[in-house]
Design a protein around this nucleic acid. Sequence first.
DNA 1: CGGTTGCTTGAGATCCATCAATAGGAGTGG
DNA 2: CCACTCCTATTGATGGATCTCAAGCAACCG
Lengths: 265, 265
Amino acid sequence: MQNAADGGHPVDPFVRKLAHGATLSEADRAVLARFAEPARRRERGDILQEGANLQSVVLVLEGWVYRYRQLENGMRQITTLYMPGDLCEPFGAVSPRMNHALAAATPVTLALVPPQALREATLASPQIEKALWWDLLLSDTITREHAVSLGRRSATERLAYCFCEVRERLEMVGLTQGESFAFPLTQAELADMFGLSTVHVNRSLQELRRTGLVSLQGRRATIHDLATIREMAMFDVSLFHSDVVTRSAAGSTPPGRRPDTREVS
Amino acid sequence: MQNAADGGHPVDPFVRKLAHGATLSEADRAVLARFAEPARRRERGDILQEGANLQSVVLVLEGWVYRYRQLENGMRQITTLYMPGDLCEPFGAVSPRMNHALAAATPVTLALVPPQALREATLASPQIEKALWWDLLLSDTITREHAVSLGRRSATERLAYCFCEVRERLEMVGLTQGESFAFPLTQAELADMFGLSTVHVNRSLQELRRTGLVSLQGRRATIHDLATIREMAMFDVSLFHSDVVTRSAAGSTPPGRRPDTREVS
DNA sequence: CGGTTGCTTGAGATCCATCAATAGGAGTGG
DNA sequence: CCACTCCTATTGATGGATCTCAAGCAACCG
């Protein structure tokens, strides 16, 4: 049995990610690390067809996965991107008949976690509970911001936003190397992700390269000017680092709270 | 104190909606109905600004609400639409600093539910637990399908899809009258929802009317040919009626399960 | 090697945005 | 009741962003 924390091996990205959402004890980490163990490997390509039967939550340990939907007219839309440490469904439940398909963008290592086990971990530790809800809220935020890209950002801005987002997510799990990080998506996949044609993705990428903001070579991306690309992408970092409330009665007013914020009252 | 189930008054849409996700006992319904009680009214316009402080989950009882995000360049994207019976956040947690704004499309009645109370109800009744997770999965599906519209449907198809979706959601809570239903959205709101200009929304709506599929008058919509509009919108009803698994060990193979479906194995 | 996959480039067509102007209804104050 | 304003829906004209079709090229692979 492989322990994710032993020498040389990278720390389990699931634990690493969730640690951003709550202060996890050693016991908490051990519980979570156990979910990330029984791994399956998959080559690039479909993992689960639409309509497939599923009883567990898919957890990505290595590689990139995405969820997509194929329309009757042949068009395809990628709706979500999953990277190491990401759960492909909300932690507490699964739709037994998949209504979107799941595919691997690279060779991947996965774990299958029964939703019941996650919910039980939630009962055993309020910190795990908080971390899992934080994770769920974060993926909601990412999904909504993807809709903002699709609706209101230009092709170039969408791609720029994508680089900012991916960088942020990979950094959370310690998978960036300085200014660069793995970026294995095909231009055709980017097109299906952002509602564009591959031709236009190609040209928009060239524009990003021409301005010197990003370079892209051999399935890796390097961001040369983070501040500028964030500005042109209208990327709001704070979305990725917001807090979460699971127990409304729990705390008194937190220290950082500004008294003038408006509430529903 | 007003009982949502008493004579003449419509049945609480929250209970009515959740009843689609699980078989609720009378006790379950009573518990849920209590959440839908302490109501606030709001006129059309913003409810919560971006950055507002929030400790409770907003539950819509009457009227339409939407979540939007305003970009620095002045553009606006509506990311989610909420109708009676809808929770505006996942039931178990809230982001205390709102990262999207919430607005009322019509005068609305709301309830504020502490996430802790919902999670506790979840512990008391497995059926409530199942219903709430079903609801969360459904709103995820709706959000993803919205992304499919934004990415891969034409303007006319997006609007057609919208009518199909709204009809389906309103029917679940008993708010359709035959072929017609309330549709209070402004053309400017539709534009911000579907990443279009108001001018183009206007012209696309005219096309839908010209083909005789939908009519739209006085904040109400009537669908004249459901089968045809569903086909042109590539609307998949089954997305709105899928099952949910909360306890993976719980059941043996359900009766409808086809043995040939593919699983991750 | 031939076949496949992914990237690149060019030219013309289409969808949709922008700008500008008009018109109807709803509310408001005189 | 009228004048006024604001909001929403509507229409026309023009331009731009992006798509489609078509082709070529490089890398990889059995």
